[in-house]
Design a protein around this nucleic acid. Structure first.
Length: 673
DNA sequence: TGAAATTGTCATCAG
DNA sequence: CTCTGATGACAATTT
């Protein structure tokens, strides 16, 4: 909830905005449906009847929107097409009323078909594309994620390396360590997207795949070495890269990356795609113009982090890298990726925006992080970050809204306003659970800051954050990653990958602090010192207006203000420098390709010229022979010789045939032309 | 150990 | 006037 003072100059006008209202309404509607109260439509599927509210169905499904709009009488009956089965429809109906989708291996296909036929909004194909392999693919991809991949991953993440089938990795049972294998029933709690999301069914596929391809290209354009560029161009990388991009598009959405491309980094680098990059740049500019937080795909910036983390941290890093990898391929904006086990959530990475993976182990744990859970049931909670749905879902999933900013703040060791003053209590059981025990030296200190003024402003913080967050792009799986978010790894968000959950990670972070660059450590330290209530990264990502709004609504101290401006400026500039360099490399690359094309063209022309010369010589000889024959047989007169000379080529003068022709012609006083 | 490559930052300009 | 992005230049760091 929030109270916002409007900007009316004279009268003080306030709006009350409830963050729980929509959830409450939906719950009541669901309750009514189950009690058959106020239901005004009957849906018949395979002879089975389902009572529901027209408005709800129409709100969720294009099919119902059309069908119901043509109905007038109360108590209408709608018989669904035979493609829709009861087993497929029922979960969708529940989803419409609860935002939750409960499915298992046995009905997921039917659900997918039903959702497709009914045009169920908020359920885009990507979801099923993402999840179906988990059900029906018993084997890993041809290239299970190996350490060798991970090592280079950080820097070459966006390449279409052999391990881009990270969706498999992500949900691979080994990765999430399920306890109850027997349970095939998984629940996807999916507070999905709102209005725009209905486009995602078909459009999203293309768009996101395109983005994936783009990401791949951008990625290896992002981290190329000059010599690799030259190598790439030397092998006509343009063509190869185009093929690659096409392959990416043609591949299925999330397990899109052809593992067959090999793990050799050089080979991968050779598959750059300048043409695609040009397209990407155009797209990039468009997005920039509308202040979309478009970022280049660049994730694996901190290889040094990987190299430096030791001991137990390595395992976490592996997981993190895999998450990051997934994020790089398929995730839209960054939010969080969590593997939750036994009530603890381990922050795995902050680079997979919009995707929080919770894996709940059967053990009963108090204070469910996101939702209630039943024992003995393996669950997978995909919090597909729907920034537009944050308010609706915040009551039910209080974590999902504030967690991101707050976790980011946590990641920087900042226990700020959000943490103490406003976050719902039950969040403590989730990401905060183990984090409470972390050795963050600033935790206690920061908590003291959450008093007085900060308490008073906490509502604003929530509101601001909800508002600002809601403006982020909305694409569940495939969307460009924000490179800046990764670049701030040392100082900002990414750090929370090692912060809130596992104590060993904290130690890892500490050691990391010692070995990382001074700048990052300094920024992080400064963020702690000024007790910034939000993560550096989050603030950097704000649009100009949002940033201004933030500054207006939150009274920063002078120190905080300076820090925020400074780090925002530097971060923006850093991103700009990276874009600039990328463009530069792209330019070099394109020029190299152009040179190669011209060289090829030149060689072709040389060959053609040689052939023509040969032909000319041959033809000249033939003509000479013919002329000689004609002249000798016809015993030509000087006048006739003159006519003949007129038509002779300069290259084959008549004098070569008749050495005495000049004498003959001079005798006849007829000059040669 | 030195060269090359990479990256962050600053200064400056333009929109 | 301020903000932002682009870019050259420099320095530090990594490879």
């Amino acid at each position: 909830m929030s109270l916002k003072a409007m900007s009316a100059p004279r009268a003080s006008v306030f709006t009350f905005e409830s963050t729980v209202h929509s959830s409450h309404v939906l719950r009541c509607l669901d309750d009514q449906r189950r009690r058959d109260v106020l239901c005004d439509v009957t849906v018949v599927v395979e002879g089975q009847s389902f009572r529901a509210h027209r408005s709800v169905l129409a709100s969720c499904s294009e099919y119902f929107t059309q069908r119901i709009s043509s109905l007038t009488q109360h108590g209408a009956v709608i018989t669904l097409p035979q493609e829709v089965t009861a087993a497929g429809f029922e979960p969708l109906l529940k989803f419409a009323y609860t935002s939750k989708l409960l499915f298992g291996k046995d009905n997921v296909l039917e659900m997918r078909t039903s959702a497709s036929v009914l045009g169920f909004r908020d359920l885009d194909e990507a979801c099923f594309d993402f999840l179906l392999p988990k059900f029906f693919s018993s084997t890993k991809g041809p290239c299970p994620r190996k350490t060798c991949c991970k090592k280079k991953y950080k820097r070459q993440l966006s390449k279409t390396d052999s391990c881009t089938d990270s969706d498999v990795v992500l949900l691979d049972e080994k990765e999430v360590k399920p306890v109850d294998d027997s349970s095939s029933q998984q629940e996807v709690v999916w507070p999905c997207r709102k209005s725009e999301s209905n486009k995602l069914g078909s459009q999203n596929s293309a768009a996101t795949l395109d983005t994936a391809a783009k990401g791949a290209n951008d990625g290896f354009m992002q981290s190329p070495k000059y010599r690799k560029f030259q190598l790439a161009c030397g092998k006509d990388a343009c063509v190869v890269a185009k093929s690659l991009a096409a392959a990416i598009r043609n591949e299925c959405g999330l397990s899109c990356s052809p593992c067959s491309s090999g793990t050799n980094s050089k080979n991968e680098t050779e598959q750059t795609n300048p043409a695609k990059l040009r397209d990407n740049r155009a797209e990039e500019r468009r997005k920039t113009e509308i202040h979309d937080k478009k970022r280049d795909v660049e994730i694996g910036e901190d290889e040094k982090d990987t190299n430096k983390r030791k001991g137990t941290l390595d395992d976490i890093m592996k997981m993190e890298e895999e998450m990051e990898h997934f994020a790089g391929i398929s995730s839209p904006d960054r939010s969080s990726v969590e593997a939750v086990s036994s009530g603890e959530s381990t922050r795995l990475g902050e680079r997979s925006p919009g995707l929080i993976l919770h894996h709940y182990l059967p053990r009963a744990s108090a204070g469910g992080p996101v939702m209630s859970r039943s024992q003995g049931q393996q669950r997978l909670v995909l919090d597909l970050k729907d920034n537009k749905k944050t308010r609706e879902s915040c009551e039910e999933e209080p974590v999902s809204i504030f967690q991101r900013a707050e976790e980011q703040a946590e990641a920087e060791g900042e226990r700020g306003i959000m943490d103490r003053a406003t976050l719902p209590a039950n969040r403590e059981g989730s990401t905060m659970g183990s984090d409470e025990g972390s050795s963050d030296p600033d935790a206690g200190r920061s908590s003291n800051t959450g008093s007085g003024q900060l308490q008073a402003t906490s509502v604003n913080w929530l509101n601001i954050h909800a508002n600002l967050t809601s403006r982020s792009p909305d694409c569940p799986f495939l969307q460009d990653l924000d490179q800046s978010k990764c670049l701030w790894k040392g100082a900002g968000v990414s750090e929370c990958t090692s912060h809130s959950g596992v104590s060993s990670l904290n130690s890892g972070e500490d050691s990391e602090t010692e070995t990382e660059g001074d700048s990052e450590a300094y920024t992080r330290e400064r963020a702690r010192q000024v007790q910034l209530p939000f993560s550096v990264d989050w603030i950097v990502d704000l649009s100009r207006n949002d940033f201004q709004q933030l500054l207006k609504q939150q009274s920063f101290t002078q120190e905080q203000l300076e820090f925020v401006h400074d780090m925002r400026r530097r971060s923006k500039n850093r991103q700009a420098a990276q874009r600039c360099r990328k463009r530069k490399l792209e330019c070099i690359y394109n020029l190299q390709c152009e040179i190669n094309k011209l060289k090829t063209e030149r060689e072709k022309l040389i060959v053609e010229k040689s052939q023509l010369s040969q032909l000319k010589v041959t033809t000249g000889h033939s003509v000479s022979a013919l002329c000689q024959r004609v002249c000798s047989e016809a015993n030509l007169q000087p006048e006739q010789l003159q006519v003949l000379a007129k038509y002779m080529s300069p290259d084959c003068p008549l004098t070569s045939l008749f050495p005495h022709i000049d004498t003959l012609l001079s005798q006849s006083r007829l000059p040669l032309p």
